[in-house]
Simulated assay, not measured.
Amino acid sequence: MNLKPLITLLAIVNPLAIVPFFIHYTMGFSRAQRRRTVLISATTAFLVIAVSAVAGLQILDFFGISLASFQVGGGMLLLISALSMLNAQPAEAKATRDEVDDAAGRASIAVVPLTIPLLTGPATMSTVVIYADQAQTFWQHAALVGYGLVVAAATWVCFTLAEPIARVLGKTGINVMTRLMGLILAALAVEVMASGLVRLFPALGAA
């Protein structure tokens, strides 16, 4: 079984790095409200990955986008995310301060921006679509959807244990973990871009 897609997804989503955001957004929530937020976030993360795995290629065909071009663009997006992580910033953190403040005042922030875009954004979707193209059998596609369950489970665990994790690791520990995952993601991003460039320019492969 190829675990590279799972490793890549875990590196991008990296729910551990989103723990401080989760604590901030759910400050003042009751225990029941926090549990509901955790459940919705984990479920939404799974749905984003599952839909991208099942229908992502069809969406590309609809817009007339070649997978090679998508690989290069997606690889660049992954590399940008990796650079953010190397600076100890979450890979998908794209929300502005106004959005953060507005979200904190809503009854539920589980979907936006906590899950989209902080947990699963364009880089996550691009990665799943690229690996979906490489899947040749039903079981390989099913494995991608299954990896979505693993990511959802990791999200559920990290958010459920958010306060103990934050206390044990501290800001420095979370930053170190984020940087390590960023380094792994940077290497994977280069592989994705190289594969797309070889498809676009076959002469590169011959060289």
Rank of each mutant, 00 (worst) to 15 (best):
Thr96Asn: 04
Lys4Pro: 00
Val128Arg: 00
Leu83Pro: 03
Asn2Leu: 14
Ala88Met: 04
Thr8Tyr: 09
His141Glu: 07
Ile174Asp: 01
Thr160Tyr: 13
Met76Arg: 07
Ser84Cys: 11
Ala123Val: 10
Arg97Ser: 11
Ile65Gln: 02
Leu47Pro: 02
Met1Phe: 14
Ala103Leu: 05
Pro164Asn: 04
Tyr131Val: 02
Ala32Tyr: 11
Leu9Ala: 09
Pro5Leu: 08
Met181Phe: 13
Phe62Leu: 15
Ala82Tyr: 03
Pro202Arg: 10
Arg167Tyr: 10
Lys94Thr: 05
Thr8Ser: 12
Gln33Phe: 04
Ser30Asn: 00
Val48Phe: 15
Val48Pro: 05
Ala162Cys: 07
Asp102Met: 14
Val111Asp: 02
Leu144Lys: 07
Leu149Tyr: 01
Val168Ala: 13
Ile23Pro: 10
Leu9Cys: 07
Thr115Ser: 12
Phe22His: 09
Arg106Phe: 02
Ile165Glu: 07
Thr127Trp: 08
Ile130Tyr: 09
Phe201Thr: 07
Leu10Pro: 04
Gln58Ala: 14
Ala103Lys: 05
Asn175Glu: 15
Ala55Lys: 12
Leu86Val: 01
Pro20Leu: 02
Leu86Cys: 05
Leu6Arg: 07
His141Leu: 11
Phe22Met: 03
Ser66Arg: 13
His24Ala: 14
Lys4Trp: 15
Ile184Cys: 13
Gly121Asp: 04
Ile12His: 11
Asp101Gln: 12
Ile12Lys: 10
Pro164His: 08
Tyr25Trp: 14
Glu99Pro: 02
Phe46Arg: 00
Gly196Lys: 00
Phe29Lys: 14
Leu16Trp: 11
Leu83Arg: 12
Ala42Lys: 01
Ile65Glu: 00
Ser84Pro: 02
Thr160Ala: 08
Val100Phe: 14
Leu78Glu: 02
Gly73Lys: 01
Leu6Ala: 10
Ala135Lys: 03
Val168Gln: 12
Leu79Gly: 08
Leu3Ser: 10
Ile7Trp: 14
Leu47Cys: 09
Leu3Val: 14
Leu188Glu: 13
Val145Thr: 00
Gly121Ala: 11
Val145Glu: 01
Ala104Arg: 15
Leu161Cys: 09
Ala203Thr: 12
Ala55Phe: 15
Thr8Val: 14
Thr155Ala: 09
Ala154Asp: 00
Phe201Ser: 03
Leu47Phe: 14
Phe22Glu: 01
Thr37His: 11
Phe21His: 12
Asp133Cys: 04
Ser126Glu: 00
Ala55Arg: 08
Phe21Ala: 11
Val145Gly: 07
Pro5Ser: 05
Ala110Tyr: 08
Gly173Arg: 01
Met177Gly: 13
Lys94Phe: 13
Tyr131Ile: 04
Leu144Asn: 01
Ser108Cys: 10
Leu144Pro: 01
Asn14Arg: 11
Gln136Thr: 13
Leu47Trp: 10
Leu77Trp: 04
Val48Ser: 00
Ala166Gln: 13
Ile12Glu: 08
Ile23Leu: 15
Arg179Phe: 06
Ala142Asp: 06
Val192Met: 12
Thr120Leu: 04
Ser126Phe: 14
Thr44Asn: 00
Ala50Val: 09
Leu60Arg: 10
Ser81Gly: 15
Val72Gln: 06
Ser41Trp: 09
Leu119Gln: 12
Gln134Thr: 05
Ala189Ile: 01
Ala68Met: 03
